[in-house]
Each structure stands twice: as structure tokens, then as C-alpha cells.
Amino acid sequence: MNIFRLAGDMTHLMSVIVLLLKIHTIKSCAGISLKTQELYALVFATRYLDIFTDFISLYNTIMKLIFLASSFSIVWYMRQHKIVRRSYDKDQDTFRHLFLILPCLLLALFINEKFTFKEVMWTFSLFLEAVAILPQLVLLQRTRNIDNLTGQYVFLLGAYRALYILNWIYRYFTEPHYVHWITWISGLVQTLLYADFFYYYFNSWKNNVKLQLPA
């Protein structure tokens, strides 16, 4: 474990906590893409298949449980909770899951470190995580402006992966044979997808104006 990875995990944890708190306290999910939340639940479900077979550390297991519980409870809130679900904008949140899931699955079948079910699922979860934010970014473009909490959520989500890139660089230089091209490239693509959002988020923060995304 290094400081970059710990900071990344904490930032990731903060992003889901911010989102859960927003939904739980104001009982609204306005501006949140259910599609993205469902994709994240799938990312964690396929990434953490080894939660009961490979014990890495207490920290690792606890964090996996937190991410699984939080992502599935966010989906539950948005689909089942009688008050929250009313604020879900299903007419605007129309991104098709399959357009992201199928290509990631096909890619994972061809590009993986080992052709085993767990490894292919793990690789699939990496590719899917890289693009899972797209429905949310599309929804933000459509609704044109976003409230602070959603902005913070997307920002933290992007920042966590950027910190992971620092972690991979650190590990590459400190651990011999630590080479994971698949992870690195998908993590880089994921962070680049946030780049334009970061640009608008930073400008709105600097000029102290409400975050407006161009149409």
C-alpha cells in the first residue's frame, strides 16, 4: 500500500458516501444517472468475485464490502425507494447499458492476463469502470447545469482514478515485475474521459460561478 493508492481509495469512498448522503438526506436523485449507478454495481460485482476466495487484507475485504453495499444501495434507492424514485429523470437518462457492456465483455475475452472466468470478469470490470461514467456525463450535458453535490461526486470519482495512476507509477518504480498494461491503459482512458469535466468544473470553481456544461 502506498499513499497514492490510499488517497485514491479514500477519494473513491468519499465519492460514494457523498452520493449516498445526498440521496438519503434530501431524498432526491435529481441529476444522477441510474444507468451509471447500475454499471458501477456491475463493476464491483464482477471485480470482487474473489472476495471470499482470495484474502488480501482486512482493509481490502472491508473496502470491497463497502463498495458493494454502497453501489447496490444507491441502485436500490433510485429504483425502489418510493420518494427518491420520483425524482429520477428516466426520460433524460436513456443511455443503453448494452452499448457499453457488450464491447467491454468482448474486449475482455480477447485482452486479458489469463483466460479464466475470474480473470476475464476482472478485466471486464476494469473496462466497464472506464466507461461507466458516460451515461452520467451525457445526462449532465442534457440537463446542462448540475448541483454541487453531483459535481463533487463526479470530481471525486475522476480524482480517485487519477490518484491510482500515480500509484501505478510509484509501484512500477518500486516493485520489480509490477507491470499491468491492461489496468494502466484502462485507468488512463477513464481519467481522460473526466478531463473535459474537470476543465469546466475547475473553471466554474475558479470563477465562482455555477457549473454550466456546454451543450
Binding site: D9, H12, D50, I56, K114
Partner: peptide
């Protein structure tokens, strides 16, 4: 062949 070491990152 070596069993791929478990992924230690979240």
C-alpha cells in the same frame, strides 16, 4: 503455469 497472483488493488 503460475496461478495469476490475486489482484491486490480495489
Amino acid at each position: 503455469d503460475t496461478e495469476t497472483e490475486p489482484h491486490d488493488e480495489l
